[in-house]
Computed example of a mutant assay.
Amino acid sequence: MAEEFPEGIDPRRVPAHVACVMDGNGRWAARRGLPRTEGHAAGETALWDTVEGALALGIRWLTMFAFSTENWRRPPDEVRYLMHFNEDLLVRRRDELHEKGVRIRFAGRRDWRVPRRVLRRMDESVALTEKNRRMTLTMAFNYGGRAEIVDAVRQLVADGVRPERVDERAIRARLYHPDQPDPDLVIRTSGEYRISNFLLWQLAYSELVFSDVLWPDFRRQHLYQAVAEYQRRERRYGGVRVDRGA
């Protein structure tokens, strides 16, 4: 409702798609003398509050970088914890997301490294929420931007597309979710200024906002601050404003 809408944000200019690199769990834990896994556990609160904030704003698409193709290089104990944590998170939260009208989707490779039980939980969550349209929450899991482009090109070859027929539309049609709009806003937490192989094709004209807040401390008010920053910017997509001449 209007009276509940965050102050300082224009409801007519809320980004349709926000993507987030959830970074800083390990540093959050280290500063407290805790195992890295405790940082991942604390990140659940941040994730849930961010989802709630996105729903309050009316954001239609929210994409979260949950586990990258590079994260397999982490210590085996941490990887095992993350697999179990993500499985447990789905079981505990999917019904509540479903009740809120959130569609759950995943982007990434379904290869042999992902435990079958995790894949089953993912498929169950997708099936349960597939008709919801209030918001689409996409978890980028075993995801890499380069891997997605490679997979799209492989599909082009498998489809027998002739070289002269290869264009942006042909590649986009073979991305993991072709119907998903490009992110208007990408947020990265923890004070790092990198893309880290996230949505490389899709963020060509996304606005980037970098936050010094470590992910476990991120809350909806930080999302609102990022959206307010987004609204202060002028998106020209390579063009110019005639009245300004620049």
Rank of each mutant, 00 (worst) to 15 (best):
E4M: 14
E4L: 13
P6Q: 05
G8P: 05
G8A: 12
D10T: 12
R12L: 14
R13Y: 09
R13V: 06
V14A: 06
V14I: 13
H17E: 13
H17Q: 04
C20V: 15
D23T: 03
D23I: 00
G24D: 14
N25E: 08
G26I: 00
R27L: 05
R27G: 06
R27T: 02
W28Q: 04
R31M: 15
R32F: 02
T37F: 11
E38N: 07
E38S: 05
G39E: 13
H40P: 00
A42K: 02
G43F: 00
T45R: 15
T45H: 09
A46P: 00
L47A: 13
T50R: 10
T50C: 10
V51L: 08
V51G: 00
G53Y: 10
L55M: 13
G58Y: 08
G58S: 05
W61A: 04
L62V: 06
M64G: 03
E70T: 02
E70H: 03
N71I: 09
D77Y: 10
E78Q: 12
V79R: 07
R80Y: 07
R80T: 14
L82R: 07
L82A: 09
H84G: 09
H84Y: 05
F85H: 03
E87R: 15
L90Y: 04
V91W: 02
R93D: 01
R93L: 10
D95N: 12
D95L: 13
L97T: 07
H98I: 01
K100S: 14
V102Q: 00
I104E: 04
R105P: 03
F106C: 05
G108V: 15
R109K: 12
R109M: 14
E124Y: 08
E124N: 08
V126C: 10
V126H: 08
V126Y: 04
V126L: 08
A127Y: 11
A127Q: 12
L128A: 07
T129Q: 00
N132G: 05
R133Y: 10
L137G: 05
A140I: 08
N142E: 14
G144E: 11
I149G: 08
D151N: 15
V153Y: 03
V153H: 03
Q155T: 11
L156S: 11
L156E: 07
L156G: 04
V157T: 12
A158L: 15
G160N: 02
R162S: 14
R162Y: 03
D179A: 13
P181T: 00
D182K: 04
I187T: 01
T189V: 09
G191V: 09
Y193T: 11
R194G: 04
I195D: 01
F198P: 03
L203F: 07
Y205Q: 02
S206R: 05
V209F: 15
V209I: 15
D212K: 10
D212L: 05
L214A: 06
W215P: 01
W215E: 01
W215N: 00
P216V: 08
P216I: 06
F218R: 10
Q221L: 12
V227D: 07
A228I: 12
A228W: 07
E229S: 13
E229D: 15
Q231C: 14
R233C: 11
E234H: 12
E234D: 13
R235F: 02
R235K: 14
R244F: 10
R244I: 09
G245R: 13
G245T: 01
